Computed example of a mutant assay.
Amino acid sequence: MTLDLGRAVLLPIDMQAGFDEPRWPARWNRDLEDNGRALLALWRGKGLPIIHVRHDSAEAGSSFAPGTPGNRLRPGFEPLAGEPLVTKSVNSAFIGTDLDLRLRRLGADTVVAFGISTDMCVSTTVRMGANLGWKMVLVPDACDCFDLPDGQGGTIAARAVHDAHVATLAYEFCTVTTTAELLRLPALAGQPLPFK
């Protein structure tokens, strides 16, 4: 894989406690948190920029309403000092936020995305980022999603939902890699980008 991490921003998307509430269907990825934390540690260890994304829902009774326990980021996924947090109220992290502007001010050219859920906010953000001209990279083993109704009384397994969306994104919108592949990348080709 060819990726200059010196121009890549890590984008953890909606790593929030609300997804653990009983109202949500079953998920599939037991390695979600370990892989996500490994990516954060990699970026922090290299002094690379991270922009966190949190969903602040405007819907009544939402798991992600501001001020509720579900709105909080999961343990280990809170921003550290100097790491900005972008809040959104729709699926795409680019709509109604200054994410695109932040990336441009950094001089970045690549966005490495992971989070919850693969088929919703992660997919929408990756698609829109690609449409805006960013080199999008998806890390599927640091993503998760849910069993979904198939509209005919049955259920589509979460892993099948995930795999179908990753295949679509890889075909048209992004490069797909794994946490392990990112951890094995050689030293930076250039200097890390500081936040401005």
Rank of each mutant, 00 (worst) to 15 (best):
L182W: 04
G70M: 01
N131W: 01
D4Q: 13
D163Q: 04
G190D: 15
R37V: 00
C121T: 00
V161N: 13
P49A: 11
Y171S: 14
E78C: 10
V90P: 00
D109M: 06
A170N: 05
S63C: 06
D119H: 13
R104E: 06
P49H: 10
D109A: 10
A167N: 09
G154C: 07
P140A: 03
L42H: 12
A93V: 07
T2Y: 09
S123E: 15
A189Y: 02
E83Y: 00
R27N: 11
M128S: 00
A8Q: 04
V86A: 07
G47Y: 12
V122R: 00
G133V: 06
A189R: 13
V111W: 01
V166Y: 02
A108F: 09
D31G: 14
V139A: 11
N71P: 09
M128K: 06
P84K: 15
A60T: 12
A58Q: 14
L5G: 14
F173C: 15
A142T: 05
F77P: 12
G107I: 02
G67N: 08
A167P: 05
M128N: 01
D34L: 12
E59H: 04
W134Y: 02
T168M: 12
L182E: 03
G76E: 13
R159H: 05
R74C: 09
I156W: 02
L85M: 13
P49Q: 07
V176T: 15
L40Q: 07
D144Y: 10
A58V: 12
Q16I: 04
F114L: 09
E83D: 02
L169V: 07
T110W: 03
L101Y: 02
I13S: 12
S63N: 14
K88L: 11
V166I: 08
V139R: 05
L103D: 01
S92F: 02
D100M: 11
N131F: 04
P66W: 04
D20C: 08
